[in-house]
Simulated assay, not measured.
Amino acid sequence: MSIFKKIITALRGGVRETGEAIVDANSTRIFEQEIRDSEKHVTIAKRDLTEVMAKQMQAARELAQLQESIKEHEGYAMQALNQGNEALAIEVAEKIAELENSAADQQQTNESYLKSADRLKVLIKKSERQLTDYKRQLSMVKTTQSVQKATSAITDNFVASNSKLLSAKDSLERIKQKQTLFDDKLKAAEQLESENSDTSLKSKLQGAGIGAQQSNAQSILARLKTK
Rank of each mutant, 00 (worst) to 15 (best):
M1N: 12
S2K: 08
F4Q: 12
K5A: 05
I7A: 00
I8T: 11
L11P: 01
R12K: 03
G13A: 04
V15M: 06
R16F: 08
E17D: 03
E17A: 10
T18S: 07
G19H: 11
S27F: 00
R29S: 15
R29L: 12
Q33H: 13
E34M: 14
E34T: 05
S38C: 03
E39A: 00
E39F: 01
K40E: 05
T43Q: 11
I44H: 04
I44D: 14
R47E: 09
L49P: 04
A54N: 14
A54E: 10
A54S: 14
Q58W: 08
A59P: 08
A60W: 02
A60M: 09
R61K: 07
E62A: 09
A64E: 02
S69I: 04
S69Q: 15
I70N: 09
I70S: 01
H73Y: 13
E74N: 02
Y76Q: 11
M78Y: 05
A80T: 02
A80V: 07
A80P: 02
G84T: 00
E86D: 06
I90N: 12
K95E: 08
A97Q: 10
S102V: 01
Q107D: 14
E111L: 10
E111R: 10
S112Q: 11
Y113I: 02
Y113S: 03
L114N: 06
L114F: 13
A117K: 00
D118G: 08
R119I: 09
R119P: 01
L120I: 04
L120T: 08
K121P: 00
V122L: 09
K125A: 09
K126W: 09
S127F: 01
Q130D: 14
Q137I: 11
T143S: 15
V147L: 05
K149T: 10
K149I: 15
A150F: 04
A153N: 03
I154Y: 10
I154D: 07
T155K: 14
D156W: 01
N162V: 08
N162L: 05
L166T: 11
S167W: 10
S171A: 09
L172W: 00
R174N: 14
K176R: 13
Q177S: 15
K178T: 10
T180L: 07
D184E: 15
K187G: 00
A188R: 03
E190H: 09
S194R: 06
E195W: 07
N196Q: 15
S197R: 01
T199C: 03
S200Y: 01
L205C: 05
L205D: 02
G207P: 02
G211K: 05
S215W: 12
A217D: 10
I220R: 10
L221K: 13
